[in-house]
Design a binder for these strands. Structure first.
Lengths: 167, 167
DNA sequence: ACCGATAGGAAACAATGTAACACTATCCGC
DNA sequence: GCGGATAGTGTTACATTGTTTCCTATCGGT
């Protein structure tokens, strides 16, 4: 059975992105609230930049974009601190293989984070999908090797639906 | 069936490391030869540093260790170029989640590279194991999402046999 | 001898990420 | 309301990781 997706992981090319951002911000507010933390203006601005697309974006790119909008240029550390808070809150993830950050566009459980990341090599769009079988197999292989795994990172490069069709 | 390993992926704590290095160097010479390239002194020295342990090591750490041995300090670019050649030859891999490099201590097929990387959080030892089921599951999940995958990166953090026993 | 491919030295730079310290804001218990 | 604890931010400087550019050398084939 081809497990159906409630929402397609890759957004349609010309989709209305407004709701994506809005929902992400709402989830962020919720997540911070739930941990007794605050979605401050700084964190909100950083999150807005990250969530502005379905691409992974570098920390300095965020810095650059905010600087263009805001007349004052903040220090890198400010962006990194905001990113850390957003990562902890689970509303932003890090694409390790590219040292970049992307917004989590779905309301899922991130304790455990057993989701794989798909990154399109052509359009740079990033999506996450659940893959329990894959993680079970990874844990099994690790365990067979006498390894007690605590966290598995899976990042897949390839072509998203639209780019595969275009190619 | 618990697929048996010809050699245990994690070396015994006090194992004789000499043969590991020797075999890795031999495989490197072979791999370069096969591609019409050369295992030059520089590349050999860099490889020796990487292969000196079963840990992942940073490029600048390699630079540092060579500088200590050699009176002359080379430029970072030299190490990076050597590493690139070694990566291409498949005798060194990169631990993406830590921006570090480790020697491949087994003679396996690198076209495709469907192996997962296990990195001990306590002793920093790195090992690779085959996990065809995991990669099949990853490809399946990607494909279900309409993603055509070309390369999957799997890095697992946890505790190796020895460290799990010690903990 | 000459050519193209391979290899590497030197200097500067680019990109990514942190440490240390000072300060303000907010919340909570009394 | 006061005082301490925690959370959040600014500023400066620094650390780590990786690259661009230009030039020189070496090797193998013709």
């Amino acid at each position: 059975m081809r497990r159906p997706q409630s929402a397609p992981p890759f957004p349609a090319p010309g989709h209305d992105h407004g709701p994506c951002v809005k929902e992400t911000l709402a989830r962020a507010a919720e997540a911070f609230e739930a941990n007794g933390l605050r979605l401050t203006p700084l964190r909100r601005r950083v999150l807005e930049e990250v969530a502005a697309s379905h691409h992974a974006i570098g920390a300095y790119e965020i810095l650059e974009r905010l600087a263009r909008k805001e007349t004052t240029r903040m220090a890198p550390i400010s962006v990194y601190r905001a990113l850390e808070a957003l990562l902890d809150a689970g509303v932003v993830h890090r694409l390790e293989s590219r040292n970049a950050y992307f917004a989590c566009h779905a309301r899922h459980d991130h304790s455990g984070a057993r989701r794989i990341v798909l990154a399109c090599e052509r359009c740079a769009t990033v999506a996450e999908v659940a893959a329990p079988v894959a993680f079970d197999a990874i844990d099994g292989a690790a365990s067979d090797a006498g390894f007690r795994s605590t966290r598995a990172l899976v990042e897949v490069a390839g072509l998203c639906t639209a780019c595969a069709a275009a190619a």
